[in-house]
Amino acid sequence: MAYLEINGLAKHYTGYALGPVNLQLDCGCAAALIGANGAGKSTLFRCLVGSVRRDGGTVSVAGQQTDEQHVLWRQQLGYIGDFTPFFNDWTGHKNLRIRSQFYPAWQSHKAESIAERLQLDLNKKVKTYSTGQRTKLSIVCALAHSPALLLFDEPSNGLDPVARQTLLELLFEEIEAGETALLYATHHVSEVEGLADRLIFLNNGTVTLDAIKDDLTEKWRHLSFRSEQAIGSIPYATPQKSELPYQQVISEDYEASAAFLQQQGIHDIEISRLSAEQIAVEILRNNANGANHVS
């Protein structure tokens, strides 16, 4: 079953538009949402959770339509946005206790074990928490009821490296348990390389690429070769900084690029893999260049 189904979601502002976005995440799917600043990632999340009204389209979570009159679907949601409000005068414990009333599936022992793994002191008042500690509390809130859908908008902001690693482990365990789908927006693809199966690229408010990670990592390669004269426009390839006679390109279909080079009489081609992070950077750069060409 699709745990998240977005059909034609749209939001218009003056000078900026999101969508229409169509997306489907199945149970057990972990997808990374990647996009430049201002690409619409946060707007998309806000439209999904309903803190911003959407102008069009439908969203269903675990088979339930999400609209204003039906809010029980939110019991199936674990969301981390740019800010989660808490009762500042109360301790972490008390904040969790208040929240737990709203979620029948809330597991107190799970909440406490997550807090412990994140090294979060729940006996302190929330107003004494740092940004990172507040984020940790949001993580506890987002996972304690084992929701069907996890929407995490740059959750690792302000987290120390150890906590970031713990967060990824926690998410891995949720997905491994197989009852949840995850959409994780981040600027650091390397962070979710082990976790995310799918990479979804958002550019200027639209999904420009939605691919299985390995479909990209199998095709994108770094090619370097030796040629006395510069080889212009190699198919599928973007030239990198190079000094003749040594040339380097990044290709989004290395077999096609290599075949072209071989036709040109170049046989000694060194081919190496790219990390998902490197590929994402290339795709985002191409997106940005594409936008520049248009304008």
């Binding site: 803190s51 809010v71 929240r99």
Partner: peptide, 12 residues
């Protein structure tokens, strides 16, 4: 606003 922002399962 905060209760809504906190994504509690309640209507506006």
């Amino acid at each position: 606003i905060t209760r809504l922002y906190a994504q509690l399962p309640v209507t506006t």
